[in-house]
Computed example of a mutant assay.
Amino acid sequence: MSQPPRIFAPHRRLAARRRAIILQNQPNAAHYLLDDMVEDVLERLSFVQMVPQRALVVGDWTGALAANLRAQGAEVIEADPAGLRGAIVLDEEQPYLLRDFDLIASLGTLDTVNDLPGALIHMRQALAPGGVMIASFAGAGSLPALRAIMMAADGDRPAARMHPMVDVRAGAQLLQRAGFADPVSDGRSVKVRFRSLAGLVGDVRAQGWSGVLTQNGPAVGEAGYARALVAFDEQAEDGRVTEVFEILTLSGWRR
């Protein structure tokens, strides 16, 4: 069996998550993307009138989703690729050691695994019959403003700095390939206005959305940064640039 291409560097992926946790200790640290994902999971469970009894929550370093599920009487295990905030370490590209969950919620991690089809299969296999998987992560179309700014910064030699992302159609195909029943793939946009490039980059880093490619581009340098600042100002309206964070959510059941 052929191995999937190594687009993402595992050590950089874990470093980005650890850096995000450090940045979260700063005043007014951004976590609106994870907050959105947590709220969405709870809304979906409410819509299908499901109260899980045994749940696995992956990637929610705020602890908000686990706390809400526990308040409903669920047994909750928290996991994270980097083992953040006391969560168990989970390698999403390997079979899960723990199984028989009636809910697996993965937040903000699956966009940077090298074997996404395999990761989804492992999630389905870890569900109990009748269990549901809900996974939200960065989707195609995210960060168009920052992409354009970095292209301007690189000038005549554009470098790979931001990783490829999955769109809604590809997400649906992945769910079917992984064997989920009643698969659903949908996306939504979170739009945020920024007064500065530093603010935009700061929010991206603080929420763990920074690049983790195996082969990353060279340092921007002073001249490149100056071009980036000009590109930011050119996109601004009323002194602010609107950035778009696309969140892709995949869900499916094990029958």
Rank of each mutant, 00 (worst) to 15 (best):
L127P: 02
L127I: 07
N216E: 06
Q3P: 03
Q215V: 14
A181K: 06
R195S: 11
A223M: 12
H163V: 04
R6Q: 15
R193S: 15
R157T: 13
A140V: 00
P218T: 09
E222F: 10
H31Y: 02
D111F: 06
N25A: 15
M150P: 08
F180C: 00
A20I: 04
E39W: 01
G86K: 11
I149A: 03
F232K: 08
A119E: 00
V166D: 01
G239N: 07
D100Q: 14
L197C: 06
D238N: 14
D100H: 13
G130S: 09
G211N: 11
S2P: 15
D154R: 04
D80C: 09
P117F: 10
G239D: 02
L229G: 02
A87R: 05
R12Y: 02
G187R: 06
G73I: 09
L110N: 14
P4L: 14
A226V: 08
L42S: 12
L42I: 08
G187P: 01
L197F: 12
R85I: 01
P144R: 11
P164T: 01
A226E: 13
A29C: 08
S106H: 03
V38C: 05
G108L: 09
G59I: 03
R147W: 09
A30R: 12
A138W: 00
I134P: 00
V241A: 09
Q207T: 04
A231W: 06
H122D: 08
R205I: 02
G131Q: 12
I134E: 02
R193K: 11
L174D: 04
G141K: 09
L56N: 11
P95D: 13
R255E: 13
A87C: 10
V241G: 13
A140D: 11
P4I: 07
D182K: 08
R147N: 04
F8R: 07
S251C: 10
D111K: 02
N68M: 14
G217I: 07
G130H: 14
I77G: 03
L229P: 00
A55D: 08
